[in-house]
Computed example of a mutant assay.
Amino acid sequence: MPETTQGLHVVAQTPFHPDGAVDHDSIATLSEFYYRHGARGLTVLGVSGEAQTLAPDEAVAVAASFVAASGGRAIFAGVSSPNLAILADVAAQVMAEGARGVMIAPAASARTDEALLSYFDTVFERIGDVPTVLQDFPAASGVQMSVPAMARLVEAFPQIGVVKEEDLPSARKVAALRCALPRHVRILTGNNGLYLPQELARGADGPMAGFSYPEMLSGVDRLMREEGDVAAAHALFNRYLPLLKHEAQGTLGIALRKESMRRRGALASAAMRAPGGRLDEHDIAELDAIVAHMDLPE
């Protein structure tokens, strides 16, 4: 897994019909949209993919639809759950459907280094040799993983081939992990791409983030890592920054992102499943005003 996991791996939205049912038809158009704009793989069933609103059978079906639309590209599926039986069952099912690996964040109870090791020891006893993305996102998990603790996890569990680094300040932690990890793993970054140029400069292998204009994320990654054109990368990033920042507003930001992607033809509906965000007329007007001043592509 580490050898191939570089570049943009979009955290995919989950499409819903206005009545809240999963829109599997839009998964195909959404996937084509992501790949056309530079995604090398997708991460599904993430926090911004509204995984918390899906029943386990729905989550597996969503992952299967993304795999079917992947054309052989990597699909990683978030399976984090406080219920280890559900975590293990969903992990087994998404892997059977063709996922490349799973993404797991620590349980909220894992508050110490020893508790972290014990938790993941139990997880890997349950799921076996499934390739795993270790998600470091304390804002969502409530768990602060230190660099030494993460190094111990990587050393103890060869299943971990990728770290998704979202602890702030993320660029500094990327650099610390690069020095501390006992073997090479890919480090991808999230936080809606807000700090992407700095994270890439410190050694990240690409973004694992969502944005309604994923071509910016893939373009900045290509310019920084492959072409070494730092000035052009920052110029591209800055062009999209007003909208990127506007989408970084939690549940409201997901609703804004989905609306922008509906307008771009990637989704049939911008609906979120309850209790997700709903845009009012003021939200729409603000989005229109921001986009109008940015001269963005269709």
Rank of each mutant, 00 (worst) to 15 (best):
T5W: 15
G7W: 12
Q13A: 13
T14K: 10
H24C: 00
F33Y: 13
Y34E: 13
Y34V: 11
G38K: 02
G41R: 07
T43S: 15
V44P: 09
L45Y: 02
V47P: 05
G49Y: 01
A51F: 07
Q52K: 09
E58R: 00
E58K: 04
G71S: 11
A74C: 08
G78T: 01
S81F: 10
L87N: 08
A88Q: 07
A91I: 04
A92E: 09
V94A: 05
G98H: 03
G98W: 02
R100Y: 15
V102P: 04
S109K: 05
D113A: 13
S118L: 08
I127K: 02
G128V: 03
G128T: 04
D136S: 05
A140M: 15
S141Y: 10
L153H: 05
E155S: 14
P169Q: 03
S170A: 13
R172M: 11
L177G: 02
R178T: 00
R183L: 07
R186P: 12
R186Q: 15
G190I: 01
A204N: 05
G210R: 13
S212D: 12
P214L: 12
E215G: 10
E215R: 12
M216S: 04
V220L: 11
E226G: 08
E227R: 15
L236G: 14
N238C: 11
G250A: 09
G250S: 12
L256I: 09
R262L: 06
A270L: 14
H282V: 10
E286D: 09
D288L: 04
E298M: 05
